[in-house]
Protein backbone atom coordinates (compact mmCIF):
# COMPACT_ATOMS: atom_id res chain seq x y z
CA UNK A 1 0.00 0.00 0.00
CA UNK A 2 1.21 3.48 -0.82
CA UNK A 3 2.56 5.46 2.12
CA UNK A 4 1.03 8.58 0.78
CA UNK A 5 -2.39 10.09 1.24
CA UNK A 6 -4.11 12.82 -0.72
CA UNK A 7 -6.17 15.51 1.01
CA UNK A 8 -9.02 17.06 -0.88
CA UNK A 9 -9.39 20.83 -1.28
CA UNK A 10 -12.41 22.79 -2.36
CA UNK A 11 -11.84 25.72 -4.71
CA UNK A 12 -12.42 28.61 -2.28
CA UNK A 13 -11.54 26.84 0.96
CA UNK A 14 -15.09 27.20 2.26
CA UNK A 15 -15.48 30.95 1.74
CA UNK A 16 -18.33 32.59 3.65
CA UNK A 17 -19.13 36.26 4.23
CA UNK A 18 -22.04 38.34 5.40
CA UNK A 19 -22.37 41.77 3.80
CA UNK A 20 -25.00 44.33 4.63
CA UNK A 21 -28.04 42.91 2.85
CA UNK A 22 -26.22 40.04 1.12
CA UNK A 23 -24.81 36.67 2.16
CA UNK A 24 -22.27 34.85 0.06
CA UNK A 25 -20.81 31.44 0.75
CA UNK A 26 -19.20 28.56 -1.04
CA UNK A 27 -21.42 25.52 -1.38
CA UNK A 28 -19.77 22.39 -0.03
CA UNK A 29 -20.48 18.69 -0.03
CA UNK A 30 -22.52 18.72 -3.21
CA UNK A 31 -21.59 16.31 -5.97
CA UNK A 32 -22.33 16.97 -9.61
CA UNK A 33 -22.76 14.56 -12.47
CA UNK A 34 -23.70 15.32 -16.06
CA UNK A 35 -26.44 13.12 -17.44
CA UNK A 36 -26.86 12.93 -21.22
CA UNK A 37 -29.90 11.31 -22.80
CA UNK A 38 -29.01 8.61 -25.33
CA UNK A 39 -30.56 8.94 -28.76
CA UNK A 40 -34.11 7.56 -28.60
CA UNK A 41 -33.58 6.87 -24.93
CA UNK A 42 -35.82 9.60 -23.53
CA UNK A 43 -38.58 7.30 -22.40
CA UNK A 44 -36.35 4.84 -20.63
CA UNK A 45 -34.58 7.60 -18.77
CA UNK A 46 -37.81 9.31 -17.84
CA UNK A 47 -39.11 6.04 -16.35
CA UNK A 48 -36.01 5.56 -14.26
CA UNK A 49 -36.12 9.13 -12.99
CA UNK A 50 -39.76 8.79 -11.97
CA UNK A 51 -39.06 5.55 -10.21
CA UNK A 52 -35.94 6.67 -8.38
CA UNK A 53 -36.72 10.32 -7.73
CA UNK A 54 -40.43 10.73 -8.29
CA UNK A 55 -40.00 13.26 -11.07
CA UNK A 56 -39.38 13.46 -14.78
CA UNK A 57 -36.90 15.50 -16.76
CA UNK A 58 -37.40 19.22 -16.11
CA UNK A 59 -38.25 21.53 -18.99
CA UNK A 60 -35.45 23.40 -20.72
CA UNK A 61 -34.11 26.18 -18.55
CA UNK A 62 -35.79 24.77 -15.46
CA UNK A 63 -34.74 22.70 -12.48
CA UNK A 64 -36.57 20.18 -10.33
CA UNK A 65 -35.56 18.70 -7.03
CA UNK A 66 -36.20 15.55 -5.11
CA UNK A 67 -35.96 14.83 -1.40
CA UNK A 68 -33.74 11.84 -2.22
CA UNK A 69 -30.25 13.11 -1.30
CA UNK A 70 -31.56 16.62 -2.03
CA UNK A 71 -31.02 15.83 -5.68
CA UNK A 72 -31.51 18.70 -8.08
CA UNK A 73 -31.77 18.28 -11.85
CA UNK A 74 -30.74 21.32 -13.92
CA UNK A 75 -31.90 21.11 -17.54
CA UNK A 76 -29.44 23.18 -19.55
CA UNK A 77 -29.51 21.48 -22.93
CA UNK A 78 -31.93 19.45 -24.97
CA UNK A 79 -30.12 16.24 -24.21
CA UNK A 80 -28.15 17.18 -21.11
CA UNK A 81 -28.89 17.66 -17.46
CA UNK A 82 -26.58 18.50 -14.61
CA UNK A 83 -27.46 16.61 -11.44
CA UNK A 84 -26.48 17.86 -8.01
CA UNK A 85 -26.88 15.87 -4.83
CA UNK A 86 -25.54 15.69 -1.29
CA UNK A 87 -22.34 13.72 -1.43
CA UNK A 88 -18.73 14.62 -0.68
CA UNK A 89 -16.75 11.42 -1.22
CA UNK A 90 -15.07 10.22 -4.43
CA UNK A 91 -16.84 8.45 -7.27
CA UNK A 92 -20.05 10.45 -7.11
CA UNK A 93 -20.95 9.15 -10.55
CA UNK A 94 -20.98 5.60 -9.31
CA UNK A 95 -23.18 6.63 -6.43
CA UNK A 96 -25.66 8.22 -8.82
CA UNK A 97 -25.62 5.35 -11.28
CA UNK A 98 -26.79 3.04 -8.53
CA UNK A 99 -30.19 4.55 -9.24
CA UNK A 100 -30.01 5.68 -12.84
CA UNK A 101 -28.33 3.82 -15.66
CA UNK A 102 -30.22 4.80 -18.83
CA UNK A 103 -27.96 7.73 -19.71
CA UNK A 104 -24.36 8.70 -20.32
CA UNK A 105 -22.63 10.13 -17.29
CA UNK A 106 -19.60 12.22 -16.61
CA UNK A 107 -18.21 13.25 -13.25
CA UNK A 108 -18.36 17.02 -12.83
CA UNK A 109 -18.04 17.44 -9.05
CA UNK A 110 -14.56 18.93 -9.29
CA UNK A 111 -15.12 21.00 -12.41
CA UNK A 112 -17.10 23.78 -10.78
CA UNK A 113 -16.88 26.32 -8.03
CA UNK A 114 -20.33 26.86 -6.52
CA UNK A 115 -21.47 29.91 -4.60
CA UNK A 116 -24.77 30.75 -2.94
CA UNK A 117 -25.82 34.39 -3.04
CA UNK A 118 -28.83 35.53 -1.05
CA UNK A 119 -30.30 38.60 0.58
CA UNK A 120 -32.35 41.65 -0.28
CA UNK A 121 -29.60 43.22 -2.37
CA UNK A 122 -28.54 40.06 -4.17
CA UNK A 123 -30.44 40.87 -7.35
CA UNK A 124 -29.06 44.41 -7.39
CA UNK A 125 -25.54 43.09 -6.95
CA UNK A 126 -25.98 40.52 -9.68
CA UNK A 127 -27.26 43.15 -12.11
CA UNK A 128 -23.74 44.55 -12.19
CA UNK A 129 -22.32 41.45 -13.82
CA UNK A 130 -25.20 39.27 -15.00
CA UNK A 131 -26.81 40.01 -18.37
CA UNK A 132 -29.78 37.73 -17.64
CA UNK A 133 -33.08 39.48 -16.94
CA UNK A 134 -33.35 38.76 -13.23
CA UNK A 135 -36.77 40.31 -12.77
CA UNK A 136 -38.75 37.98 -10.47
CA UNK A 137 -41.43 37.71 -13.13
CA UNK A 138 -38.92 36.47 -15.66
CA UNK A 139 -36.14 34.54 -13.90
CA UNK A 140 -38.23 32.89 -11.23
CA UNK A 141 -37.45 30.23 -8.64
CA UNK A 142 -37.09 27.07 -10.68
CA UNK A 143 -35.17 28.73 -13.49
CA UNK A 144 -31.61 27.94 -14.52
CA UNK A 145 -29.55 29.25 -17.38
CA UNK A 146 -26.03 29.64 -18.68
CA UNK A 147 -24.60 33.09 -19.08
CA UNK A 148 -21.32 34.99 -18.93
CA UNK A 149 -20.32 37.16 -15.99
CA UNK A 150 -17.18 39.26 -16.31
CA UNK A 151 -16.00 37.05 -19.18
CA UNK A 152 -16.48 33.90 -17.10
CA UNK A 153 -18.95 31.26 -18.27
CA UNK A 154 -21.50 30.84 -15.46
CA UNK A 155 -24.51 28.77 -14.59
CA UNK A 156 -27.07 30.69 -12.54
CA UNK A 157 -29.86 28.96 -10.66
CA UNK A 158 -32.76 30.82 -9.08
CA UNK A 159 -33.31 28.82 -5.92
CA UNK A 160 -35.84 31.15 -4.30
CA UNK A 161 -36.75 34.81 -4.21
CA UNK A 162 -33.44 36.70 -4.01
CA UNK A 163 -31.48 33.45 -3.62
CA UNK A 164 -29.16 32.20 -6.33
CA UNK A 165 -26.61 29.49 -6.91
CA UNK A 166 -23.77 30.60 -9.14
CA UNK A 167 -21.38 28.14 -10.74
CA UNK A 168 -18.23 28.75 -12.74
CA UNK A 169 -15.35 26.56 -13.86
CA UNK A 170 -13.09 25.73 -10.97
CA UNK A 171 -10.00 27.33 -12.47
CA UNK A 172 -11.77 30.71 -12.46
CA UNK A 173 -12.64 30.47 -8.76
CA UNK A 174 -10.50 33.39 -7.62
CA UNK A 175 -11.59 35.75 -10.39
CA UNK A 176 -15.21 34.65 -10.06
CA UNK A 177 -15.29 35.34 -6.34
CA UNK A 178 -13.69 38.73 -6.87
CA UNK A 179 -16.29 39.67 -9.47
CA UNK A 180 -19.19 38.80 -7.18
CA UNK A 181 -17.63 40.33 -4.08
CA UNK A 182 -16.94 43.58 -5.90
CA UNK A 183 -20.51 43.71 -7.16
CA UNK A 184 -21.80 43.27 -3.63
CA UNK A 185 -19.45 45.92 -2.26
CA UNK A 186 -20.55 48.35 -4.96
CA UNK A 187 -24.21 48.11 -3.99
CA UNK A 188 -23.96 47.82 -0.23
CA UNK A 189 -22.99 50.60 2.19
Amino acid sequence: MSNYQLNAEIPLAGYSYHFDGVDLFEIRNRAMVSMATPKDGELALECQLKQAYGLGMPDMGQWLSSDVDHTQFLRLQDDLCFVLFDYSADRAMEKFTEKISEAYFSEQSDSWVMLRLSGEKSREALARICPVDLHPGVFKPGCVTRTVMEHIGTIIVCEAEQEYTLMALRSYAGSFLHAIELSIKNVTP
Partner: peptide, 14 residues
Protein backbone atom coordinates in the same frame (compact mmCIF):
# COMPACT_ATOMS: atom_id res chain seq x y z
CA UNK B 1 -27.64 14.83 -35.33
CA UNK B 2 -28.66 11.26 -36.06
CA UNK B 3 -25.63 9.91 -34.19
CA UNK B 4 -25.89 8.67 -30.63
CA UNK B 5 -23.01 10.63 -29.14
CA UNK B 6 -22.65 13.10 -26.31
CA UNK B 7 -19.82 15.43 -25.48
CA UNK B 8 -18.84 17.20 -22.33
CA UNK B 9 -15.72 19.00 -21.24
CA UNK B 10 -13.72 17.36 -18.50
CA UNK B 11 -10.79 19.79 -18.63
CA UNK B 12 -11.50 21.12 -15.15
CA UNK B 13 -12.57 17.85 -13.59
CA UNK B 14 -9.05 16.42 -13.54
Amino acid sequence: PEMDVCLISATEQF
